[in-house]
């Protein structure tokens, strides 16, 4: 086995990198792959919490790099889905505690044991991003339909391209189909036009994300929700399956006011 190594990144914070990493990792494991999600956000770790594994963290990957423990001791096995593992980040260290060469070494150690190594990258374009991206072959760029997020995604895509990552594919997160229909949100194609990279999935805004974070259970494990569906599709596309994009308009629930508004303004879309 030689794992595919994929970094999840965005530039801007708070767009859903960690949520995406956790859900895609769980989905890939559900499809029978052996997956490790690596929290590359040293000092601000959160992947453990999103995956609901925070109580089982003993060692972290910096302990592995510094040879305080063996890799097998640092890996946290998720008991809910076979084949799913977490490699936590250190919470009490800073991003300077590692360098890109050490990250590459770490990934090389994981590669023979897994089908997928997913690296959850910190926000920003400095050391933390460079460390996380160094070990990866492919990249997933997460953005939301807002100018600041798309702008930062553009910057990150440029950096990933210059680092030779390929393919680099886009996840549009937290899209609100209602608002797009009303012309009050950047649409999928508006974003693709300016970023001109391949899209791997669109995840609709969904309250289930908050519930799943509260419960520490990635949506793709159990919940049947629009966002869970979208992440399962993304995982399938990563596996090379040709899955059509979800019909997000069917999720657009329209209230009385918006119907009234549509009637008076005559907006078709």
């Amino acid at each position: 086995m030689a794992a595919r190594v994929i970094v999840t990144t965005s530039g801007k914070g708070g767009v859903g990198k960690t949520t995406s990493t956790a859900n895609i990792a769980a989905a890939l494991a559900k499809f029978g792959k052996k997956v490790v999600a690596v929290d590359a956000d040293v000092g601000l770790r959160n992947l453990d919490v999103i995956m609901g594994l925070e109580n089982r963290v003993v060692y972290n990957f910096i302990d592995v790099i510094e040879k305080t423990c063996k890799m097998a001791q640092a890996l946290v096995k998720d008991k809910r889905v076979p084949g799913l593992y977490l490699l936590p980040a250190a919470q009490t260290r800073t991003k300077d505690a590692v360098n890109p060469e050490q990250m590459i070494g770490l990934v090389e150690e994981l590669k023979p044991e897994f089908d997928f190594v997913l690296l959850d990258c910190p926000a920003g374009i400095e050391g933390g991003f460079k460390n996380a991206a160094a070990g990866a072959d492919e990249a997933l760029v997460v953005t939301t339909p807002e100018i600041p997020a798309v702008r930062d995604a553009d910057r990150i895509i440029g950096m990933l391209e210059s680092m030779g990552k390929s393919p680099i594919r886009l996840i549009i997160n937290r899209l609100r189909p209602n608002m797009v229909q009303d012309g009050d949100m950047l649409a999928k194609d508006d974003i693709l036009d300016v970023l001109s990279i391949d899209l791997i999935g669109v995840v609709p805004e969904d309250e289930s994300v908050i519930r799943s974070t509260n419960n520490g259970e990635p949506m793709t494990m159990t919940l049947d929700s629009p966002a869970a569906h979208a992440y399962l599709n993304i995982a399938e596309r990563l596996l090379g399956h040709d899955v059509p994009l979800m019909d997000l308009e069917s999720y657009a629930t329209r209230g009385f006011f918006s119907k009234l508004k549509k009637f008076f303004t005559g907006k078709k879309k």
């Binding site: 807002e146 100018i147 798309v150 702008r151 553009d154 910057r155 608002m179 797009v180 009303d182 012309g183 009050d184 949100m185 950047l186 649409a187 508006d190 300016v194 009234l260 508004k261 008076f264 303004t265 005559g266 907006k267």
Partner: peptide, 26 residues
């Protein structure tokens, strides 16, 4: 129509135009 804001450019269109210019400059 005015009450519901139908005569303005939709904010999505405004965002699209602003985004294009910002990226061009960047």
């Amino acid at each position: 129509k005015k009450f519901f804001g139908g005569d303005k450019d939709s904010s999505g269109q405004v965002a699209k135009d602003r985004l294009r210019i910002v990226l061009m400059h960047d």
